[in-house]
Every structure is written in C-alpha cells, then in structure tokens.
Design a protein around this nucleic acid. Structure first.
Ligand SMILES: [Mn+2]
Ligand SMILES: [Mn+2]
Ligand SMILES: [Zn+2]
Ligand SMILES: [Zn+2]
Lengths: 155, 155
DNA sequence: GCCGTTGTTGCAACTCATTGCAGCAAGCGG
DNA sequence: CCGCTTGCTGCAATGAGTTGCAACAACGGC
C-alpha cells in the first residue's frame, strides 16, 4: 500500500547477474542470434529494476550508442518477452511499461485523480485471478493488469 | 460468456434518442459550446452502439465531412467523457476504445492466444471491485478494466 | 578461415494520439 | 442586429510504436 516509487536503477544482485548472462544462451538455444544491438539492450536492462517504458530504454541505449534504432529495441523487447525475461503492462494511458526482473509478479493500480500508483501484489491479485479462473477457466496475466479508479483519499 | 461480437452500429432506441438530444443542453449548462464539429461527432455516435476506437470515429465523421480534424474529434471525446456520455477503455495493445451507451457497465477480457474477447459483466466484476474496495478503499472503474490472458480452450 | 542460410538490422513510411498556439466563432448582453 | 468574451478549431509539430523490405551479418558447417 506504498505509493509506487520504485527506483528505475539499482545495482544488480548476484543471482540476477546469472539471469542476464544466460540470455545469450537462451537466444541461441532457440536459433536466435546474439547481436551487438541485443547485447546493448541487455546491458541496459541489467542495470535496471522495476518499471521502464520502451522510450526510456531507447533513450538509455542512446546514451551508450546514439545510433540506436527504436524498431530494433522494440523488436528485441518482444523477443526478450517471449523468453520470459521481461514482461510488459500498460499505464493508465495505454502506454507500454516493462517489468524488469520483478521481485514478484504483480499488477498495477492507478488513481485517476491524484495520479498515485500502487502494485497489486500476487496475494491481492489472487482474488481476481481465482474469480476468472472459476467463472471461465481463464488464466489471467496479472503482470498485464492495470486498474484505474479513485484512491481512498481522493474519493 | 459469448465472444464479443457486438455490432458497431444499430438503430437508436427511443430512450437513447433523448440521451443524445440532451447533449447540447448539457454542454451549454457547463458554459461549453455546441459547434458543427461536435454536432457531427454526436450524430455519428448516436448511430453507434458497443465499442469503437477513436480512429473509427474519425473515419466515420470523414464519411460525412472529409475535412474532419483528428484533434478536434479526440478533444470532443474528452469533453463527452467528462459529461459521462461515453467512456473509454484500452484494448490489449493499449489502444483506446470507446463504450457508447453500453447496456451496462462492463470490463473486457482478451485471450492472448486466439484473440477472442468477452465482456466482464458488472456481476463478474463485482468480485474485483469489492476486493480492492475492501483492501484499499479503492473505487475501481470497471469500464476501464482490460484483462489479458489465455482462455479455457487455448490453455 | 570461408560460405551459405536465415535471422536481424536500418530505414522509411505509416498509424494513433497529444499539444501549443493563433485565429475563429458560439452565444450572451445590450 | 452588433460587439465581446472566451471556448473551440485548424494546423503543424511531436511522441510512441509498428511494419515491410532490402541489405547485412551471426554462426554452424565444411
Ligand atoms: Mn485510459
Ligand atoms: Mn499489452
Ligand atoms: Zn488519488
Ligand atoms: Zn483463446
């Protein structure tokens, strides 16, 4: 129930390092290639935790290499998402947001009035997931869920 | 639990006619103006039921008047949403979708695998709304909720 | 180390949506 | 009917993201 102020960057933890180092092999295991452009994006991602937009990532890649091309970044993000390395959701405006190495799967809650945001933890989300599972046999992707409304203090 | 195949257009019902006719007065009551551009969009909307994207609406306005300007349409949609005449949600890709005179407030459910879509009825949504209300005092806007995952037959 | 296959990149064009601003006009008051 | 105020429109620029395609290059095989 804390406002969502997760810092965009932080130092990598030891077990995260391993996760990033495996990316190359995971790509090659699927017949995909380990290119300089992908290396660059993975390097940026490995310095990142929490939430980032595609545009953020492009900007950060450009800091390293100004010749970075947006479509390449977005296509690489698609590939990394297929591999389960990142996941995306959408802000209240529909804009994409990537979850990078989240400590736990979670959704998002946004107050339309004050703009504050919170994470919907896996526990809290369980109610939602269970109800659609029971009613329709539907498997909810909690990390893609964004719920908008008014928070307690704005009501 | 029917796939969401709501037809984009249909004849207006008697009580809907009244709703659209009141738009002019509702605008003026707020000190806003009843312009030819707004008249045109309201005319298009009054021929519409179910879900439409902003781009759809622009296209339909252009059929009547090719000089229609996108920003004017989007701004008018914002005004109409303020007045509670339309509401928007977002598709799984984040693109805007307007609900026009829905029979009842509802959310949306999309299968990532087969692309099928369903409405989350107010009853079904009640579980979600109630859990966030109880846990956080948060008032969920069900019509803005889009949940993505895998449907029973795609699992 | 060279070659060929095929996954990737760069690029340009395009879609959807938003914003700042100057000129325009709806609607009110006289 | 006229003029003023102020909300609205048109337009041009901008931002986010996607797509088709031809040239390129990763990397497995020889
Ligand atoms: Mn929205
Ligand atoms: Mn999505
Ligand atoms: Zn709030
Ligand atoms: Zn499905």
């Amino acid at each position: 129930m804390q406002p969502d102020g997760s810092p965009p960057r932080s130092e990598s933890r030891a077990d995260d390092v391993a996760a990033w180092e495996s990316v190359r092999d995971r790509l090659r295991a699927r017949g995909l290639r380990w290119t300089p452009q992908r290396r660059a994006l993975v390097a940026v991602l490995s310095q990142t935790r929490g939430h980032v937009t595609g545009a953020d990532l492009i900007e950060r890649c450009r800091e390293q290499d100004p010749s970075t091309i947006p479509s390449t970044v977005y296509r690489t993000l698609d590939v990394l998402e297929d591999l389960g390395i990142v996941r995306h959701g959408h802000g209240p405006d529909g804009r994409e947001e990537y979850h990078v190495l989240p400590d736990a799967e979670h959704g998002h809650l946004h107050c339309r009035a004050c703009g504050a945001a919170w994470e919907i933890t896996k526990d809290e989300g369980a109610t939602i997931v269970a109800s659609l599972e029971a009613a329709r046999g539907f498997a909810v992707d909690l990390s893609h869920v964004t719920i908008v409304g008014r928070c307690r203090s704005c009501r």
